[in-house]
């Protein structure tokens, strides 16, 4: 018999916005992400073993959502992944890049994020959106924390490269440089 309690629903309400962010990162489709989160919630509520601790709960429902997505991908024989940029070609921090540009260009960041490979989107979603520690993300992905550290770094470098090379980054800066 399901044992999803009122406290579990409260935890779910708290984690759901970030869970949606993670789902968007996985699916790259807001509608699909909404469906995926809803299905994960249904699966969670019908579970017989619900973690009582909030951190454990967050990791648990994230794992449910991730497994659902993997199942769907397999079922559809879908390859959503994109080619990752070779690390050697990437300049870490392009010149002229400023943190203010990123703050002003959230939409641009979102667009560039969407062009990342699925694995880069996922690792950044786990760390930046869901707020997982490297250890928690490593456990979820079945890798070592050091691997997570490298992946996060590569994903951010790729994101910065896309923001720079595709000319979308320094929006205000570029505008200022125009005659």
């Amino acid at each position: 018999m399901p044992v999803f309690s009122t406290a579990n629903w409260t935890m779910l309400r708290r984690v759901s916005p970030r869970l949606v962010g993670y789902a968007v990162a996985l699916t790259h489709d807001p509608d699909l992400a909404g469906d995926l989160v809803q299905d994960a919630i249904v699966r969670a509520v019908e579970s017989r073993n619900v973690p009582a601790d909030e951190r454990a709960f967050r990791a648990w429902i994230t794992r449910i959502l991730r497994n659902l997505w993997i199942d769907r991908c397999r079922a559809r024989r879908r390859r959503a992944d994109r080619a990752e940029a070779p690390a050697g070609e990437v300049a870490d921090f392009p010149a002229g890049f400023r943190s203010e540009d990123l703050i002003l260009n959230r939409i641009v960041v979102r667009e560039a994020f969407g062009r990342l490979s699925a694995s880069h989107r996922e690792i950044l979603a786990l760390i930046d959106i869901l707020g997982f520690s490297y250890g928690e993300a490593a456990e979820l992905l079945g890798v070592r924390p050091g691997t997570v550290m490298s992946r996060v770094s590569r994903a951010r470098r790729d994101l910065l490269r896309r923001l720079s090379d595709e000319g979308v980054v320094p929006f205000p800066a570029a505008a200022r440089r125009m005659p």
């Binding site: 629903w9 779910l12 309400r13 759901s16 916005p17 970030r18 869970l19 949606v20 962010g21 993670y22 789902a23 968007v24 990162a25 807001p30 509608d31 992400a33 909404g34 989160v37 809803q38 919630i41 249904v42 870490d92 921090f93 890049f97 400023r98 943190s99 203010e100 990123l102 703050i103 260009n105 959230r106 960041v109 979102r110 994020f113 950044l124 979603a125 930046d128 959106i129 707020g131 951010r156 994101l159 910065l160």
Partner: peptide
């Protein structure tokens, strides 16, 4: 500068989910 850029990048990614899709937990419940 690099630290500031990475912090802004992190904040920009963190905002992605809430800006693009919402799920009504109460309705599901």
């Amino acid at each position: 500068r690099r630290v500031a850029i990475l912090r802004s990048l992190r904040a920009g990614v963190a905002a992605i989910g809430e800006e693009t899709a919402r799920v009504d937990v109460e309705a599901i419940r």
